[in-house]
Computed example of a mutant assay.
Amino acid sequence: MNDVAGLRQPMVTSIGIIMGFQLAFLANWALTAETVPAVVGLADTVLALTFLVSTVAFMLVLFRLLNNRIVTNPGQRYQDTLRIYISALVLAFVGLAVALLI
């Protein structure tokens, strides 16, 4: 798979949507905790850490997708980027699930 140009745009769009939901969730979470800190227990800590790591991973994926430097093997670079993307997505949902169960 050498021509990955058509595969990048859907991933960029989905990252925008997912990060938008993540940031809106975190902003709402922070604003509802008016008198106390938003992170008070183990569940809050797990959720905050997993969202932070997944957001950083999504930004890394976005950088890799939008970087226009010529690479020797674009197919392999896309596969590596896809793995990071899927890992960030799974991490966000696992963090949310764990926070709900704690």
Rank of each mutant, 00 (worst) to 15 (best):
M1F: 13
D3S: 15
V4Y: 04
A5D: 03
A5R: 13
L7M: 08
Q9V: 09
P10H: 14
P10M: 09
P10C: 04
P10A: 06
M11V: 15
V12L: 12
T13F: 12
T13E: 05
S14V: 07
I15T: 08
I15V: 14
I15R: 13
G16N: 08
G16L: 06
I17G: 05
I18E: 00
G20Y: 09
F21C: 07
F21R: 12
Q22I: 15
Q22S: 11
A24G: 05
A24L: 14
A24E: 04
F25D: 08
A27I: 13
W29L: 01
W29N: 03
A30K: 07
L31R: 12
A33V: 05
E34V: 13
E34M: 05
T35I: 12
T35W: 06
V36S: 09
P37V: 13
A38W: 00
V40L: 03
V40W: 01
G41A: 05
L42P: 00
D44H: 10
T45G: 01
V46Q: 05
L47I: 03
L47S: 04
A48N: 05
A48P: 02
L49F: 13
T50L: 03
S54D: 04
S54N: 05
V56L: 15
A57K: 15
M59G: 03
M59I: 14
L60Q: 11
L60N: 12
R64H: 07
R64L: 05
L65R: 04
L66G: 00
N67V: 12
N68L: 04
R69L: 00
R69M: 02
R69V: 05
I70Y: 02
V71S: 07
Q76E: 14
R77K: 06
Y78R: 07
T81N: 00
T81M: 08
R83Y: 10
R83H: 10
I84E: 03
I84V: 15
Y85S: 00
S87W: 12
A88W: 09
L89I: 04
L89R: 11
V90D: 00
L91F: 09
L91V: 11
F93V: 08
V94M: 11
V94T: 11
G95K: 10
L96V: 08
L96Q: 09
A97Y: 06
V98H: 06
A99D: 00
A99S: 15
L101A: 12
